[in-house]
Design a protein around this nucleic acid. Sequence first.
RNA 1: GGCCCCUUCGUCUAGUGGUCUAGGACUCCGGCCUUUCACGCCGGCAACACGGGUUCGAGUCCCGUAGGGGUCACCA
Length: 552
Amino acid sequence: MPTVEVCPWGGLDTHSDHPTIDHFMTVRTRFAPSPTGYLHIGGVRTALFNWLLARQAGGQFILRIDDTDLKRNVEETLQPILDGFRWLGIDWDEGPDVGGPHAPYFQSQRLERYQNAARQLLESGHAYRDYSRPEEFAGEREAAEKEKRDFVYSRTWMAETDEQAARFESEGRTCVVRLKMPREGRCEFRDLVRGEITFDWALESDHVIQRADGTCLYHLANVVDDHDFKITHIVRAVEHLSNTPRQIFILQSLGYPLPQYAHIPFVAEPGSKNKLSKRKIDQYLNNRDFKRLYQAGADIAQRIGVNTDPSSFSPVLVDFYREIGFLPDAILNYLVLLGWSLDDKSEEFSRSQMIEHFSLDRVVKSEASFDSQKLVSTQSRYMNDLPLKRKSKMCLGFLQKSGLVSDPVECEHMEYINRVIMAAGDRICMAGDILQFDTFFIPDESIEFEEKAFQKRLVKPENAGALLAEVEKVLMTVPEFSAKALEDSLHGFCEVQGIGIGDIIHALRVAVTGKAAGFGMFDTLEILGRERCSNRIKLALAKLGERSSNTV
RNA sequence: GGCCCCUUCGUCUAGUGGUCUAGGACUCCGGCCUUUCACGCCGGCAACACGGGUUCGAGUCCCGUAGGGGUCACCA
């Protein structure tokens, strides 16, 4: 078996120039997460590419659970992953919860299938019982390493007949099943992203596919399942590239057709080419942009009572974005451009546009670093395009979770919230940003004046207090308390006083909001309303009076 | 270390031998607008890893070198 011809179902010529889709067969792709308790952003990217391919071709996207080796509570650790996909709108046609014609979709429930395949491999001579003890096998490998030569197992403890097996067993040995890999020739296959790939068969070692206790290993399970589920395109991260020869060997030995392979680059760490990992958050936090995103998220999370421990709350995990009010479409748009592009200009892709335009032949080969800035920028664009109603609904959730607004919300209060959100405009990037404008939702007496701003705008300018007191009178007498009328009145006031509008507005802003920066001044006044503006100005003046009497 | 893969601005990318004096996006830096912040608008900085070929001509093809990454489990 020196060379492999890639030839999937339907007689598709994989060496043609149109490798993406075979119109004669249904495209079926899959994503096979391990139930780890969280959904990794890199995994989402891989799933997205698979999903896109299936949706584009009108095929199926399957979710299969790789739990062969896991003793932990699968249900509990799987749920966050399913929730994550649902939130993102990446739906699966077959898999957990939805079932399907090839059920079960949990590898832990398919052991028998793998054992049958192992038996078949044994019978056809493509695998053998190996009675070596672990230290014996390892010893051979270490010896090879020491002598700096390629390791080729001697197969000393290989049993191909029952007599041989009996002899080893009489020595008290137990056996595993190993692949009997070819020792000459090359394994050649075509990768939809990388082109022709070649490996020497002789360098592939005899991998174990079944343990002594009868349980089977990942590569066997993987290949058997992909075949059983009729997967046509294996789109996976490039770290699986070197696993492909042994999988092809299993496939071939079992007489199964080969799927199309596409090894996509993985998502790399910010500013490096290492694979993005959940465990290295502390290190990523040294990256300015990454830290900024994390901090923005943590600020929001703290106010709504979400744990901000970076081991479970981090920009590497999808949950992070859901917690702080990102839009799924924005995340998908960002991710689809991480390793894929349509042309030299297109940046915006709705779901349907992604489905329409995505193609594996435009996937790049090199790894793409995770860039939190660009993700935030994409999110910001999507948020600004969101209709007010949806934006308000998202923001309302955060106001309620932080206790700023009652749940359920009163109808007339909703109108007030809408006005705040409209005035905030693009200052709200993620929905949780609404909490930065909490000043509009607190009782007047709870207002806290930013110390620095208070000093600069109220304490330091000599006549600020007197001016502010005058302004308060003006506000009380304005016939209509609207942004437009307020603007006119205040401009008029400034003219009379012979000052610029800038001489009063900063003090006014600090007085009514407590903050140095915010939305348009007149919008702010209108939203707050006459009475609250007056209350707050009086509070500010009182505080100012306290100050001067203290310092005198 | 063996094998495999990758290498264009800080980042994501366009580019398939000839207006590429390398285009776009994000970031960054100026300026304008302005009552603050943000937006917006205008402008700017910034890249073909290196060395050999092939060719009239190379970011684009070939060969080396260097660098980076992945993988070499009775993990997935």
